[in-house]
Design a protein around this nucleic acid. Structure first.
Lengths: 219, 219
DNA sequence: CGGGTTCGTTAGAAGTTGTAACTCACCTTC
DNA sequence: GAAGGTGAGTTACAACTTCTAACGAACCCG
């Protein structure tokens, strides 16, 4: 029985309108960026007057926060789906890149320029932790030999972010570099900093990935 | 008669007011981000009425573009200064991190979330090229042995961005990874994605840097 | 069928970017 | 020195934005 929640017609309608608002918001963000998002424009495109939207979202910030939440959820789902499909770190990296290229502005909603005052709600940071956990799981499948670096030692003493994951420091280190290096390539590519440089970003991404998975040879 | 490039009092006054506008703009950006920049607020804080600013900048976008230009120039100057001071890639990396930490929003003005429609003027991309040239110069001092990777081969055929720099493909590759890996760590640190994770971002940065400078062991 | 909840409306406050027209001071030229 | 052009700053205004307040009307439920 899937009637997990007995939704009244009103609740269903409300959910549908909220969904359509978010849909229009995504369209607007994809074409003009998050800073150009206008509640008024969304309302008019939906055939309603501006203030009507405030029945569904208390403020513009709340709508954007909800979009950020959805972006995190979408990324977490993508990563989790890749994992349950048996993906190794390589598959995970390609899933990440596909997700990012599908909607660059969604990627930047997660990893882009932060607003100085803003602090994400706890549930969003929880999703971020889940993503890191999946990444740790994937990296745990790789061999963790190679010499221990000074930073490995530091990580052994500062592994708050790993929760109670039993991975050894070298694996923590690999997960971290996995994250930051792929983000380094991906964010610059999505921001257009590679355009006109001549090389193929996909090949560079794969090269970084290959280096990441090669035998750890840190000195 | 002509050839008098001596600045008139009017030009000096104009330059000074422009400079003060940009100064206030930087203050605002540092505390609330570039999207919250308000010409009106700047004017009021300077004791002028709103439209007066349009004598100095044709639009909000033009002011922001000018700030982006200054940010690029500042970064290029920092890199160049480090180079002329005899800095190796390590020194260059530390100069970069210091510059970024001094004003995170300035870093994001250069490497942050792009506005979909926006294309930087040519003079800005020229500064970006100069930065890459400095980085290439620094990397050229390092030994470029180690096995050639498939991506090295690709770079050998797609080296538009290197101009006529005589560096071998392995050096191009190293400069690229230098850029993207350090940006990966730095941007996530500045965006606050490491807060609460426990480890020290500076150590992680140095670890990535050390790995970058270790003997190339890509297979 | 009445009553409460909720939705959507219009009106309006306070903010923004940007234009137009006017004043006034300064600088140059006669 | 007087006249006039140039440019800075002003106010007024249009068109937008977010968001609040008050009102009407539709809906659901007892």
């Amino acid at each position: 029985m899937d009637g997990a929640e007995a939704t009244t017609p009103r609740e269903r309608y409300r959910a549908q309108v909220r969904a359509e608002i978010k849909e229009r918001a995504w369209e607007q963000i994809a074409t003009a960026g998050a800073s150009a998002l206008s509640l008024n424009a969304i309302a008019k495109r939906m055939g309603m007057s501006g203030p009507a939207l405030y029945r569904y979202f208390a403020s513009r910030d709340e709508l954007i926060t909800e979009l950020v939440r959805d972006a995190y959820r979408s990324l977490a789902d993508t990563i989790r789906a890749a994992r349950t499909a048996g993906a190794d770190p390589t598959g995970l990296a390609h899933a990440l890149r596909g997700w990012a290229l599908a909607d660059p502005q969604r990627y930047f909603l997660v990893y882009g320029t932060p607003v100085p005052g803003y602090h994400a709600p706890d549930d969003i940071t929880a999703i971020a932790s889940e993503i890191m956990a999946s990444l740790l799981d994937a990296c745990a499948e790789l061999s963790a030999d190679g010499p221990a670096t000074p930073f490995d030692a530091h990580l052994a003493d500062h592994r708050d972010w790993a929760g109670d994951h039993p991975a050894p420091p070298a694996t923590l280190h690999r997960a971290l570099t996995f994250w930051t290096r792929l983000h380094g390539v991906l964010s610059l590519e999505l921001a257009g900093h590679f355009t006109g440089m001549g090389f193929d970003p996909a090949r560079f991404y794969d090269a970084e990935l290959a280096d990441l998975l090669s035998v750890p040879a840190k000195s």
